[in-house]
Design a binder for these strands. Structure first.
Lengths: 224, 224
DNA sequence: CACTCAACCCGACAAAAGTCGAATACTTTT
DNA sequence: AAAAGTATTCGACTTTTGTCGGGTTGAGTG
């Protein structure tokens, strides 16, 4: 219980709650672990709980009947997810799958929802949280519809790289990255290769290093 | 003022408020009209008010530097918009443009935001409203990334048609519809034409009529 | 009613993205 | 360390989507 409590304290939209409230939540929290590739929940299912990731990474994605996959986002330690379904009483709009061994706390919907009525400041945090989701989805739509694969790759690199290095976790294969960018591994491979050939980046299994940030920014069509 | 009050009463997320509250809102409401093609607000601008559409239609879209446009949604009479930016204190994530003559009420952000703290039920409505936005964006992403133009066209027809007829407003040109579907007018034209040739639909300037719903559903790849 | 302009359509073409089969390189397991 | 499995790459090819120039239609305007 103690552990759950400490974690709850760090969730953004629970900020400002006093200890008794948190203890109550902590008492209803359930611990879950998932093996790599395990399905955490499926698109269309009714959501029953909010998740708070303790360790591991997952992907949230949609799939087409013929097996193609579009990843909406990756989620790592410290991030809450499935708030949307829980707070809005909707079915899960997408599927969540563990990319590696994952441990997470589940807080049943009722426990969290009660807070909405009694603690308006929580509601405000929730709104801001979901608003960020909308913003990132809007920019995903714009990327998919308005920009070439090369541009999207360049943008991903600029987005993810810290100090011009984008570290690659074990699961960050070209297959997963391609699904994130809305394309297929082959095409991503070609795009990366042509960047390597052009001397813009350097790449190995564990990281991608940006060598020529300026050219990359031109490829990304970032506006001044 | 009276008029504004009557309209406010019909806004979904203001349901449950008592009259004095609404009167206060109505007093701060501002009336605005826009000519066809007028820009209502631009992507990136700070949002200062929530809009409530009285008459006319608008489009919310993102554009690329080279002029291509992706429409996120159309909005008509009775629908509120820009809640996202107002409630979450973000800049507008997209641009809004009038498709025809538009009249709308603006309610300044501060007036609405105060309600969030004092009236938790309003917050819940706001969350549900934004959640719907997330869901429709997720399905737009899936459409763009996972399905062909023909499939998207078929889906649009099935979505929009009532009684197998999709009425076309004056502004619903192939240019606008194509921008909504994430393609260009020519390609949309071809897709529609091939459906007409296949006897699946019938089409004129004012409406598109579904003749063979079953085939259309197969094209839309709706899952059983 | 003639004129104008936007919408729509067509056919040929160009480019981007996706597919396929097979070779190669890396990891992980045994 | 060998075997097995996964990830990446390659080249050739197909499909889809987008582009371009020009032509037709039809609604709205003076």
């Amino acid at each position: 219980m103690k552990i759950a409590l400490d974690h709850l304290r760090t969730i953004a939209f629970l900020q400002g709650l006093d200890d008794p409230q948190l203890v109550e939540l902590a008492q209803s929290a359930i611990w879950r672990e998932y093996a790599p590739n395990a399905v955490i929940f499926l698109e269309g299912e009714a959501a029953s709980a909010i998740y708070y990731m303790d360790f591991g990474w997952i992907k949230v994605s949609k799939s087409s009947p013929d097996g193609r996959e579009q990843i909406l986002r990756f989620l790592g330690p410290g991030e809450p997810f499935n708030e949307l379904s829980v707070f809005a009483n909707k079915n899960n709009p997408a599927t969540a799958i563990a990319l590696e061994a994952v441990g997470a706390w589940l807080i049943p919907r009722e426990a969290v929802r009660r807070l909405l009525v009694t603690h308006p400041e929580v509601a405000i945090h929730v709104i801001e949280n979901i608003a960020d989701r909308v913003i990132s989805l809007v920019s995903l739509v714009a990327d998919l519809s308005l920009h070439s694969v090369e541009t999207r790759v360049a943008r991903m690199l600029l987005d993810e790289a810290t100090e011009d290095v984008m570290a690659r976790r074990r699961w960050a294969t070209q297959t997963e990255l391609a699904a994130r960018l809305g394309t297929v591994p082959d095409v991503l491979s070609r795009a990366l290769r042509s960047m390597v050939d052009a001397g813009v980046i350097e790449m190995n299994r564990h990281e991608i290093r940006v060598l020529d940030r300026q050219t990359l920014e031109e490829m990304a069509m970032v506006e001044s």
